[in-house]
Amino acid sequence: MELVRDLMIILFTGILTENFILNKFYGICPFLGVSKTSEGALGMGVAVTFVMVGASAVTYPIYHFVLLPLHTEYLKTVCFILIIAAFVQTVEMILKKHIPALYRTLGVYLPLITTNCAVLGVTILNTDNGYSFIGSIVNALSGGIGFLLVMVIFSAIRERIDKCSVPKALEGTPITLIAASITSLSFVGFSGIVDGIFGG
């Protein structure tokens, strides 16, 4: 039970109180770039979640069974970014060959993900926080779901902003950032909810 509770705490903290976009500022570039339409936001969110979980699963054994025994922890940044790049490339090739339908929906977002700081960020957070293998996977999953949730919510807000008349100086990025600030403010309301539910 203890394990399940810990995992639930990681999961809900990542989705609500420490959201990757609105609280930790990972992946702001795709957040501003791809959130113009709901379909784009959904596709990007699903692709990022998938790659984050996959990258966490691949980097965990490499860090614990290769880098740690050889005392080369300082190589983790170089190592992880290469693993992520190779992983993204592999996923893209496998999808293209075997599941063309999924490739058509997610394919366009995959190359953009290599340089998404959320992916490298989550793998480094996993090792910094000393999560177990399952903890790492759940952490990546919660980050991904939180990312997906905010992307979809925010794309709806942006579709509304497009129809409004915005003061000239604020057109474009400034109004988007201010809207993001208000969205972030609304997520502050979730603070304490995880402790409240799980008595952490």
Binding site: L22, N23, F25, A169, L170, T173, P174, I175, T176, L177, I178, A180, S181, I182, S184, L185, V188
Partner: peptide
């Protein structure tokens, strides 16, 4: 807080623009 970060950056970008 994070919200203030988004807001400040938005205003500064508008001013620079």
């Amino acid at each position: 807080l994070p919200a203030g970060g988004f807001f400040t950056l938005g205003c500064i970008i508008a001013i620079i623009g």
